[in-house]
């Protein structure tokens, strides 16, 4: 089964933001959606989730299901969406916040089956230890995990994650990415994750898609598509690539042409913060 997006155009008012995007995601595949701020990643994801509507193009699932024509409830049983910003308010407890993911499945009264999904999703995101705390009492990262658990409870066939790791500490970043990959494989889900960290994308996703100004300009396995030229074109920064344990890694280039890693470079030159002039160069490049 395939999620297929063809010549998709989406805009806000008169302004087009997604300008003819094409993309296919296979079942069991995790796609990294990359691109600079404002390139249209969130807009694309929200359109697949049925939050925005497209002006042109099609989104199909399984060949013959036109997702843009499905009733909301039916769409919500196929597609789950984890928003970029955390929007939790009032005092639901965590369990009930995760139960929101079951909204498309039950009427007034959740069934045992719904609660079973909630328990499984909570356990998976390490939330059962937080017990019945109110959502308002959680840290940003814990809140983010609640949102992911909510999406998992939705039991989706297509999982869309919009920068799910931005608020998380490194442990939960990795764990979330692993959960995303795990769910993708085990539940045979087609997953798209918008992500800014190129190295994490290389490490955890099967394929990456570069979005620029609403158009897909490159896609493929990270090791194959990452190139200094592409990254310069998308982000306007000079980088150097290396391979670590089989995964391609991206490092920024210093003015002297060697990569600035977190570690000391091979020369004994001390690590220093870039001068203002260099930063400005990055900003305007």
């Amino acid at each position: 089964m395939t999620l297929k997006i063809s010549s998709l155009e989406v805009g806000y008012g008169k302004r087009q933001v997604v300008k003819g995007a094409n993309l296919t995601v296979e079942k069991g595949e995790l796609i990294g959606l990359l691109g600079s701020n404002g390139s249209g990643k969130s807009t694309l994801i929200k359109t697949i989730a049925g939050i925005n509507s497209q002006t042109k193009g099609t989104i199909t699932w399984n060949g013959d299901t036109d997702l843009t024509r499905l009733a909301r409830k039916d769409l919500a049983r196929i597609v789950a969406y984890v928003p970029q910003s955390i929007g939790l308010s009032f005092g639901l407890d965590i369990r009930e916040a995760v139960l929101l993911g079951r909204t498309p499945y039950f009427g007034t009264r959740p069934r045992d089956e719904d609660w079973a999904h909630v328990d499984a999703a909570m356990e998976r995101m390490g939330l059962d230890e937080l017990g019945d705390r109110a959502v308002t009492e959680l840290s940003g990262g814990q809140g983010q995990r609640v949102l992911i658990a909510r999406a998992l409870a939705q039991d989706p066939q297509i999982l869309l994650l919009d920068e799910p790791t931005s608020a998380l500490d490194i442990r939960y970043q990795w764990q979330t990415l692993e959960v995303a990959r795990d769910v993708t494989r085990k539940n045979n889900v087609a997953a798209v994750i918008a992500i800014h960290d190129l190295n994490q994308a290389a490490r955890f996703t099967d394929r990456v898609v570069f979005l620029q100004d609403g158009v897909v300009i490159a896609e493929g396995r990270p090791a194959e598509v990452y190139s200094p030229e592409l990254i310069k074109r998308v982000y306007g920064v000079d980088v150097e690539l290396s391979t670590h344990k089989g995964f391609v890694q991206v490092h920024p280039l210093s003015e002297h042409g060697h990569a600035q890693l977190g570690l000391q470079p091979a020369t004994s030159e001390p690590v220093r913060a870039p001068r203002l002039a260099e930063q400005r160069e990055y900003a305007t490049a």
Binding site: K46, A49, G50, I51, R72, K73, D74, L75, A76, R77, V79, A80, Y81, P83, G87, L88, S89, F90, L92, E96, A97, L100, G101, T103, P104, F106, G107, T108, V135, L147, R150, Q154
Partner: peptide, 18 residues
């Protein structure tokens, strides 16, 4: 349950919850 979704998840997420 729809009210819960609107109140506690926001418009966008509530839409994505059907």
């Amino acid at each position: 349950s729809a009210l819960n979704a609107i109140a506690f998840a926001g418009d966008d997420s509530a839409k994505s919850l059907g």
